[in-house]
Simulated assay, not measured.
Amino acid sequence: MLKVHEIFASIQGESSFAGWPCGFLRLSGCNLACSWCDTRYAGDSFADMAVADAVAALMALGLPLVEITGGEPLLAPETPHLVAALADAGLTVLVETNGSLDIRGLDARAVAVMDVKCPGSGMEGRNDYANLDRLRPRDEVKFVLTDRADYDFAREIAARVWTGRMVHFSPVPGLLDPARLAAWMLADTVRARLSLQLHKYIWSPDARGV
Rank of each mutant, 00 (worst) to 15 (best):
R138E: 12
C30T: 09
L196Y: 09
T92N: 04
L32K: 04
H199V: 05
G23A: 13
E6D: 15
T189F: 12
N127R: 04
D88K: 07
P137N: 08
G23V: 01
A87W: 00
M185V: 10
M114I: 00
S100F: 07
A57F: 12
P21G: 10
S28P: 09
D107N: 03
T189S: 14
R136C: 01
V113Q: 00
N98E: 07
R165W: 07
S170K: 00
D139Q: 04
V144S: 04
M1W: 03
T39L: 04
G125Q: 10
P205V: 06
L175V: 06
D206I: 03
I202V: 15
R136F: 09
N31P: 02
L86E: 01
D102P: 04
I202Y: 14
G29I: 10
E96C: 02
T79R: 09
G105D: 00
A183G: 03
P205Q: 12
G99E: 09
R138D: 12
L101M: 13
L82M: 06
L27W: 10
I68R: 07
R148Y: 15
D147C: 11
G29V: 13
L196C: 05
L194M: 09
F153H: 09
C22R: 12
E14G: 01
P119Q: 03
H5W: 02
A50K: 09
G70A: 13
V161D: 01
C37P: 10
D107P: 02
L65N: 07
G90C: 02
T39E: 00
L82W: 03
F143R: 01
C34Y: 11
S35H: 14
A52S: 14
P119N: 05
S45L: 09
V51R: 10
G13K: 02
G43L: 14
R138M: 10
I157G: 06
M185Q: 14
R193E: 13
R180W: 10
Y151D: 08
A182Y: 02
T79Q: 05
F17R: 10
E14A: 01
R160D: 12
H5S: 11
L186S: 12
R180T: 15
L82T: 05
A149T: 15
I202E: 11
M166F: 12
T69S: 07
D128Q: 08
N127G: 09
R134C: 08
D38V: 04
D48N: 07
L2M: 15
Y41N: 08
S28V: 10
G19T: 10
L145E: 13
A187C: 07
R134E: 05
R193S: 14
D38I: 11
L82Y: 06
A52T: 14
V111K: 02
L196S: 10
C37R: 13
F17P: 01
P73E: 02
S170Y: 02
E156P: 00
A42P: 06
Q12Y: 02
A18E: 12
L61W: 12
Q12G: 04
D147R: 08
A57D: 09
P73N: 06
N98T: 01
C30I: 03
L135I: 12
V172Y: 11
E14C: 03
R155G: 15
D188E: 15
T189W: 14
S35E: 14
V51S: 02
F46I: 03
